[in-house]
Design a binder for these strands. Structure first.
Length: 351
DNA sequence: TTACTAACCTATTCAACGT
DNA sequence: ACGTTGAATAGGTTAGTAA
């Protein structure tokens, strides 16, 4: 197996071409779903053959439809909570099958993983060919591997959990009003007005930190990883700053490149859940600043400097980002603010 | 342009299996 | 019993395609 160049696809890993199922395929899948919403690997393989699509596509379809069905069932139960029959005895499902990988197969996968933690469909299929493992199992294997083996070299940085952006699901779904100077209690974020502390900062990159902040203040992984992931999209870093400090920081130095992509992302007000950086006009800037005590600014200054340092040190995954490729131009390339700029700007504002 | 949805992600949990 | 790890699920985003 030639791993010298990961399939010549560095920076070009693409997702599987999206297919559109035809009516016959959909009907067949629905019929099978009625019979058994949890087909095993072999069944999915047969179905794949029959329908002329891949087994992992079958798997994806079934996953989605199990979700949909659960939603429907939930709604049904909610509406008809008095109805009987909801407690129909559950048929004991057969135990999960567990693929037993050989050592050689695992070695191959590990080797590939070392080169590329996010293999695209082409890579996965090549691996499938070489190992004889179904592509969908390889996909799962990589998911598990990523979860259990964080990238010690750059992974923690590459998957840096940054402050949540405007699309924070937790807040989006709960429809939290835009916080002004306080955080929703549900947000497990480092108290805003404490000095940046590498051990407990909002950018705590440790795995524990990620877990703790899961679905609260951290961006969804797909926002960080997918954005630079196997799609060479121009999608920008859309992480946002703490709802507390972002507006204030922006008020302090609006032209700072750090904030630009964030604003760009939030130009559509409909996308803005309130946590995003608000575009500040002249009339809103002053109150934003005035609401902050000077001691708060001291924190902001520290936080900003610290954040800039983090940015400056961060080296994006080479696979997904290439400085020479404008297609993959990454917003993190932005020149970090010079820390020396901060006191200067702060003085201007505080005078 | 917009709605739909396949493809993909992480985080978490379940469970098979070897020790 | 416990650790490892394959599999499944929940809850998201992204982006291609059809209407």
């Amino acid at each position: 197996m030639d791993l010298s160049c990961p399939f010549g696809l560095l920076g070009k890993e693409v997702r599987r071409r999206r297919i559109v199922l035809n009516q016959k395929q959909k009907d067949t899948l629905r019929a099978w779903f009625q019979k058994n919403p949890n087909p095993d690997l072999a069944t999915r393989g047969l179905l794949a053959k029959e329908l002329g699509i891949s087994e992992s596509q079958i798997m994806t379809w079934f996953q989605k439809h199990r979700k949909i069905q659960k939603q429907v069932e939930f709604e049904y139960c909610f509406e008809d909570s008095q109805a009987q029959g909801r407690d129909k005895p559950k048929v004991k499902e057969p135990g999960r099958s567990r693929t037993q990988f050989t050592k050689a197969q695992v070695d191959t996968l590990i080797a590939a993983f070392k080169i590329n933690r996010f293999p695209g469909i082409v890579t996965r299929e090549k691996l499938a060919q070489e190992t004889g493992i179904p592509e969908s199992r390889i996909h799962i294997w990589f998911q598990n591997r990523r979860a259990r083996h964080p990238d010690t070299q750059q992974g923690t940085q590459a998957t840096a959990q940054l402050p949540q952006n405007s699309q924070c699901p937790a807040l989006k779904t709960t429809g939290q009003p835009p916080p002004s100077t306080t955080l929703p209690s549900s947000l497990s974020v480092t108290p805003a007005f404490s000095p940046p502390d590498p051990q407990s900062s909002p950018l705590d990159l440790s795995r524990g930190g990620q877990k703790q902040l899961s679905r609260t203040i951290v961006p969804q992984p797909s926002q960080v990883v997918q954005g630079r992931g196997d799609r060479p999209s121009s999608s920008v870093f859309n992480g946002h700053l703490s709802p507390v400090i972002a507006p204030a920081l922006e008020a302090f130095h609006p032209p700072a490149p750090l904030w630009l992509p964030i604003q760009e992302r939030c130009q559509d007000p409909s996308e803005d859940s309130g946590l995003a950086v608000q575009p500040l006009d002249g009339s809103t800037q002053a109150p934003a600043v005035n609401q902050l005590a000077r001691k708060d600014f001291a924190f902001l200054q520290h936080w900003d400097e610290w954040f800039q340092l983090m940015l400056a040190e961060w080296v994006p995954d080479r696979e997904y980002w290439s400085p020479g490729n404008p297609e993959l131009q990454h917003p993190w390339q932005m020149q970090p603010l010079q820390p020396a700029d901060l006191p200067h700007q702060a003085d201007e504002i505080l005078q």
